[in-house]
């Protein structure tokens, strides 16, 4: 965008919680922050560059996590159809016992997670707008009421995790643990691995939301939110996939 790149002088004015979208010299050692090529970093377009780089990184991360879950799925299908040889009756018996899922709670969790995807998307768009205005030197009016989309997302994220804990506790009160049956093992493994990965995203969001406290550059804040957003949406999709797997391949 040519207009933006002409307003180079605004970059020095501190605004929006930390330094404006310009580039701040690395504080630690050479090699610096996670933005590689120093040569082009002073360029105004460097934010876009960094953004693209982070998006590729996140895409690769998503591919890696998908591979992990594809493997777990294969193991799930393989294990479901595997039997145990009963030497007394001389026959194969299938030891897989289908689970009855607590649908009500699971649907609530699903809704919470999808809603959080929506709020995060709102947060991302709002920040992108702010960045563009900031580049034009327009500071948002102080004290105007705004929806704290990012905070909401974090809350919803914790809500989802709490909901999952409720589901796990439900199973445990029925005496179903990780080791009882392959079906319960897989239930805990799939949902647990998803929760662990989601927690990673949640930490990234907390980091971005605490930007003001951490004296994060607005720039880095947008970046964190943008990159995490794709990951977060993926986590939503992954959850739907896991839910579908547990539902359609109950066994």
């Amino acid at each position: 965008m040519p207009i933006i790149s002409e307003h180079v002088h605004v970059e020095r004015k501190p605004k929006l919680g930390g330094g404006g979208p310009g580039k701040i010299p690395h504080k630690r050692g050479y090699g610096g922050g996670d933005d590689g090529d120093h040569d082009r970093s002073k360029d105004f377009s460097s934010r876009k560059e960094r953004l693209r780089r982070y998006r590729i990184g996140i895409l690769l991360c998503i591919i890696s996590v998908s591979t992990l879950f594809i493997c777990l799925t294969l193991a799930y299908v393989f294990r479901q159809n595997l039997g145990t040889w009963d030497p007394i009756h001389r026959q194969w018996i299938r030891d897989w016992r289908a689970l009855t899922l607590p649908y009500r709670q699971l649907w609530i969790n699903t809704l919470i997670l999808l809603l959080s995807s929506f709020t995060l998307e709102m947060a991302r768009r709002k920040m992108a707008h702010q960045a563009e205005f900031a580049a034009l030197g327009i500071v948002p009016i102080k004290g105007r009421a705004e929806v704290p989309w990012l905070g909401l997302t974090v809350l919803l994220g914790f809500g989802f995790l709490a909901g999952q804990v409720v589901v796990w506790n439900g199973f445990r009160s029925q005496g179903l643990f990780l080791h009882n049956n392959p079906s319960s093992s897989f239930f805990f493994i799939l949902t647990g691995m998803h929760a662990i990965h989601l927690t990673g995203g949640l930490l990234a969001l907390l980091y971005a939301a605490g930007g003001r406290l951490l004296k994060l550059r607005f720039d880095s804040q947008i970046l964190a939110v943008d990159a995490t957003a794709s990951y977060w949406h993926f986590m939503g999709g992954l959850w739907l996939y896991i839910f579908g797997l547990l539902y359609f391949l109950k066994g």
Partner: peptide, 20 residues
């Protein structure tokens, strides 16, 4: 990523009583 999935299952077999 594949190996990690396998390692997790094996660790659980050894320490959590699962049967894979």
């Amino acid at each position: 990523s594949v190996l990690l999935a396998a390692l997790i299952l094996l660790l659980l077999d050894r320490n959590a009583g699962t049967n894979f």
